[in-house]
């Protein structure tokens, strides 16, 4: 069984080898129109297959994003089917992640009273795969209707007790923390049950690493934009600890200012690994630096592991980063942003 999983590890590495390189990004930076960028992706990158049936000379930016996201999910399904990994519960992780993401998106649009906008942004490829009816979710006009749609899913119990405020607004952040916590708990529980000790340790490490990074970014945002105190940061953090222990995380939350937060972070294991961490850096740059570190750790895990779960988990994260890079570049091209700005947003692997 182990040997057969190694084939997946090798396949994932081979697919990862086709990722966009610095040269591709440099070419994309020089494009003046979205259609030129789409055409480059079609002719020169591993996205050629997904874009093959598309006329890039008239492609809409939104549709390009949809196609890229679909390619991302299709790739995941293809890898899982390669050695019937899809028959094992853990390998549903991306579907669950996407479902939760749809659910949160729907809540966000409901709060903003833009119900029709949700159907436009919904990932159509999930309609037939999702464990709940996405079209019905899009039709929901309030939180109760939304809960009815997900009644038969585990997500119902997670958010059923969250009450909308007097204006009918659903507390989005609470929902997000609850659903993310559920997702991570599910990952940990499934990994515990499914894998033997070495594989389990390896994948648990990756999951907790991801939780660490989510906590660092979220708590920094709360500190920077809402001057969140210790209790607020603690309430909105995910109860998982990887290389940053609970005590260390609490120490960060106790910072009085965002600058102090960064100063304290620089003394942690992650801070020492971040090359350009500076207490006066802009929030956007800080998040890019965190993502860069996360990316390099995922890349390291992908290249060194012999475990299919770690391999796929890391690969999907790295591909997500790549797609976000492309989306950022396309947005920048659309709004005529300079190359230097694009470079600051892109995380090269």
């Amino acid at each position: 069984m182990k040997a057969s999983k190694n084939a997946t590890v090798a396949k994932v590495r081979a697919i990862y080898g086709k990722r966009l390189k610095e040269n591709d990004y440099n070419e994309l930076f020089l494009k003046k129109k979205v259609i030129e960028a789409a055409d480059y992706l079609k002719r020169n990158t591993h996205y050629s297959k997904v874009l093959s049936g598309v006329d890039t000379s008239s492609i809409h930016r939104g549709y390009l994003e949809t196609l890229l996201n679909k390619a991302y999910f299709d790739e995941y399904e293809r890898i899982c089917k390669f050695q019937q990994l899809n028959e094992e519960p853990f390998y549903n992780f991306l579907l669950i992640k996407e479902e939760l993401s749809e659910l949160l998106k729907a809540i966000l649009y409901l709060n903003n009273d833009r119900k029709d906008a949700y159907i436009e942004s919904m990932h159509g490829f999930l309609i037939k795969k999702s464990s709940f009816n996405l079209i019905e979710l899009a039709k929901a006009e309030n939180f109760n209707q939304l809960l009815r749609v997900i009644k038969n899913t585990p997500y119902y119990n997670i958010i059923k007790n969250i009450k909308p405020d007097e204006n009918g607004n659903i507390p989005y952040t609470k929902c997000e923390v609850a659903l993310r916590t559920y997702y991570l708990k599910w990952l940990l529980k499934t990994a515990e049950e499914q894998f033997d000790s070495t594989a389990k340790d390896a994948i648990l490490q990756q999951i907790k690493l991801q939780a660490d990074f989510i906590n660092i970014v979220n708590s920094y945002r709360l500190k920077k934009y809402f001057a969140g105190d210790f209790q607020t940061l603690k309430d909105f953090s995910l109860p998982f600890y990887g290389r940053l222990s609970q005590a260390k995380q609490y120490e960060l939350y106790e910072s009085d200012t965002p600058e102090e937060f960064l100063r304290r972070l620089s003394r942690t294991v992650y801070g020492r690994l971040m090359e350009n961490l500076d207490e006066n850096m802009e929030s956007g740059r800080f998040e890019t630096e965190v993502e860069k570190l996360q990316c390099s750790m995922a890349k390291r895990a992908l290249l060194l592991t012999d475990n299919a779960a770690v391999s796929l988990f890391s690969y999907m994260y790295l591909t997500e980063v790549e797609i976000n890079n492309i989306i950022s570049i396309v947005e920048c091209i659309r709004y005529g942003k300079p190359v230097s700005y694009m470079q600051s947003l892109v995380i090269m692997q």
């Binding site: 949809t66 679909k70 159907i119 919904m122 159509g124 490829f125 309609i127 079209i135 899009a138 039709k139």
Partner: peptide, 11 residues
């Protein structure tokens, strides 16, 4: 109409 979008028509 992209096949992805065609699935949304029932909305």
């Amino acid at each position: 109409l992209p096949n992805e979008s065609a699935q949304k028509l029932s909305y």
